[in-house]
């Protein structure tokens, strides 16, 4: 009989897979209480490192063409489809759902990447505008990514909720620091392995596992984070107050549905800034 080789579940920061600098892990059991993995428990320092990585990657990712970003998001769907068995197995181990239910969740996650991929080069065609101002001016409004987005991922979703939190942020050129569901972290780390093989530049998505309760406040108050998604927050009101200090854009919990095979344009736009350009016309 051959002994299987187990995977070490680590963090994902700047395109690399480090352990937590704190050296901490927490024990994750399956739905029947049997040991599954020792998951890295990210610290404040890990969160700050992740913000640095996200900031470093942001301008490059935002200046990639929309076509290029769209192809990379579609590539993520391709890679996810190719590794569906692994996701199904992890979701079932963590939650105990049936195979068909786990498969349906993976289906929705894949299709949502495809749905979001298609938006990259259409956002401005739908939500931008040429403004007929009264003077002799050319006046155009476009949408630009907000910058670095902190995401406290939904606690009750292993994959689809996570995808529907990350995709609407990165499709437009934001980079993200994600705190995965504390109780359902395995598919989050496996998702980063998909991201790492999809031509997504390192640092665009940074994944922390551990306690959103512990890390969330550091991200909410961080000076170099532009927006925070509080879907999986433990004390959302406190975090929203903290985020107000730096005028962060805040997505409150339950603002958008995250269980479907498609997202919401409003969610994408909530993480973008409108920029209006004026230029005179005349010979």
């Amino acid at each position: 009989m051959r002994l299987d080789v187990r995977k070490t579940y680590k963090l994902f920061i700047g395109g690399k897979f480090p352990r937590s600098e704190s050296g901490r892990t927490y024990e994750l059991n399956d739905h029947q209480g049997k040991f599954l993995a020792n998951v890295a428990q990210a610290s404040r320092k890990d969160a700050r490192d992740a913000v640095v990585a996200a900031r470093a990657a942001q301008s490059g990712w935002a200046s990639a063409s929309a076509y290029n970003r769209g192809q990379i998001l579609y590539r993520i769907a391709e890679m996810l489809e190719a590794r569906r068995e692994q996701f199904v197995a992890e979701i079932r181990a963590m939650t105990g759902v049936s195979s068909s239910k786990a498969n349906a969740e993976v289906d929705a996650a894949i299709d949502s990447w495809v749905w979001h991929a298609g938006w990259s080069d259409k956002i401005d065609s739908v939500a931008g505008s040429m403004n007929p101002v009264a003077g002799p001016y050319f006046n155009i409004s476009t949408n630009q990514p907000t910058g670095v987005v902190a995401i406290l991922a939904p606690q009750d979703s292993a994959l689809v909720g996570l995808v529907n939190s990350i995709a609407p942020a990165i499709v437009s050129g934001n980079t993200v620091v994600v705190v995965a569901s504390e109780g359902l972290p395995l598919s989050a780390i496996t998702l980063t392995e998909v991201l790492a093989t999809s031509d997504l530049p390192g640092g665009v998505v940074n994944m922390l596992t551990g306690s959103a309760k512990e890390i969330g406040p550091w991200l909410a108050s961080h000076q170099d984070v532009n927006a925070i998604d509080l879907e999986g927050a433990h004390s959302p009101v406190e975090l929203e107050i903290s985020a107000a200090e730096t005028i962060k854009r805040v997505i409150r919990a339950n603002s958008f549905s995250r269980g479907d095979s498609r997202g919401s344009l409003q969610h994408i736009l909530a993480l973008m800034e409108v920029k209006t350009v004026w230029h005179p016309k005349g010979h």
Partner: peptide, 10 residues
Amino acid sequence: FFYYAGWADK
């Protein structure tokens, strides 16, 4: 084709 693929569900 890639561009219009993205329109089909939008």
